[in-house]
Design a protein around this nucleic acid. Structure first.
Lengths: 221, 221
DNA sequence: AATGAATTAATTGTGCACAATATTGGTGTG
DNA sequence: CACACCAATATTGTGCACAATTAATTCATT
């Protein structure tokens, strides 16, 4: 694996696993010495993360982990609600017992991670489940977008999730596999839709006091 | 406007307007002297364009304008077919006469550009029409994705489009506005779906002999 | 003349140094 | 004591130089 990709993965993981919480500053010096590469390499990675909305870069102020506002949180979830159920039909065209078994193993791991209270693994596995499902639709363009949305969702859960927002899905995922095994297309679509709406409704989107208030926008000018 | 953003825009325009055709090499030296900035700034822009799939960067071989293969072309159009019609309901919630007038002006410009045979303007305006429509749905996350897909479609038309692939849409767009003015939701959805399928079917996706055959994948390893 | 090796040229990858900017802390004055 | 101003520090922005890699050319050999 290329070095850049490796650093990117590590940082993305740290962000979605909430080890780098929303708002955390990411000074290039520290990162460059932590990873043992020059600032040049770090900057490349940070810019990629910024384009994918995982970090925010402000000119002459550096990078920090994105703290999604309520609008962004809502839109990301709405996007998933709009897209993921629509992928079910194409997905079912390729669905077979091998896939089913592979996903059941994933669900087992999800449960294990949840019971062991390993939040990081749990988050990763939940996102992977949805992404791998999207990939089976056969459309890699959409699958990549869904992947990004899933990881952004993890970030959103860090900011607006209740305790258990992540874990409470695990039992659910095996339900979907049952439905898919029976080839019930419409039921699978509505299940996916409900599932995502459930996640969205579990968020606390009331305007909680933001820690970095944009006073300029609020009063000034 | 920031300097980076300016360079990015100019290059993106040149690409989607087919002034930089698919496969064109983009040496950092030439670009840096053309734009009057150092290679550092150019690299940043190139990396952004690469993440958005407008250029391909190969290690130690530099950047070139992406030449989408048939799978990618198909998937991009399918993505639009899946998403854009679904945006209609939310869009209609905000639709009013001001919007209608604004879009009719855009369509008029489209026609003018087409009749004047100004391919570049025509391409830009077509993409803008779909993007601005998507923005009205109120979901900026999805709208940005649609924007990217529209521009990628321009690139695809450069590679697989027939003469008139671009222009033949203009008359159509005003049809949609009529339907929207009448608030006919389902009709607008199916219109959008047909419209995009029509564009996709106008592409020549037969496996034309690829100029760069990947012998590595074919035989090697 | 065709093939293959070796040299040369062109291009990208990476780290460093310095400039530009923002933030923080301190100092002096009203 | 409040306020403005200035200095110091920390951090990012940018360009340049050199290393590493690839592509092109030349040359020798059969």
């Amino acid at each position: 694996m290329s070095n850049d990709e490796n650093i990117y993965r590590q940082m993305l993981n740290a962000i979605v696993e909430h080890q780098l919480p929303p708002g955390a500053r990411l000074p290039e010096d520290r990162l460059s010495e932590a990873f043992g590469v020059s600032r040049t390499g770090i900057r490349k990675v940070l810019q990629r993360l910024a384009l994918e909305h995982f970090v925010i870069i402000e000119k002459n102020k550096g990078a920090q982990v994105n703290r999604p506002n309520e609008a962004e949180a809502s839109e990301v979830l709405d996007s998933r609600i709009l897209i993921e159920p629509q992928l079910i039909p194409a997905l079912l065209d390729h669905w077979n017992t091998e896939h089913s078994e592979r996903f059941r193993i994933m669900v087992t791991e999800e449960k294990r991670a949840e019971e062991a209270n390993q939040l990081a693994d749990s988050i990763q596995l939940t996102a992977r489940f949805h992404y791998e499902l999207a990939k089976l639709s056969g459309n890699q363009v959409l699958a990549s977008f869904v992947e990004q949305l899933c990881y952004r969702s993890s970030l959103i859960l860090a900011a607006y999730g209740t305790r258990g927002s992540v874990g409470c899905e695990c039992g659910d995922h095996s339900q979907l596999l049952d439905i898919l095994d029976q080839g019930r297309k419409d039921e699978a679509k509505t299940w996916m839709s409900h599932h995502l709406k459930h996640i969205k409704s579990s968020l606390i989107l009331e305007s909680k006091p933001e820690e970095n208030i944009d006073f300029q926008r609020l009063f000034g000018r």
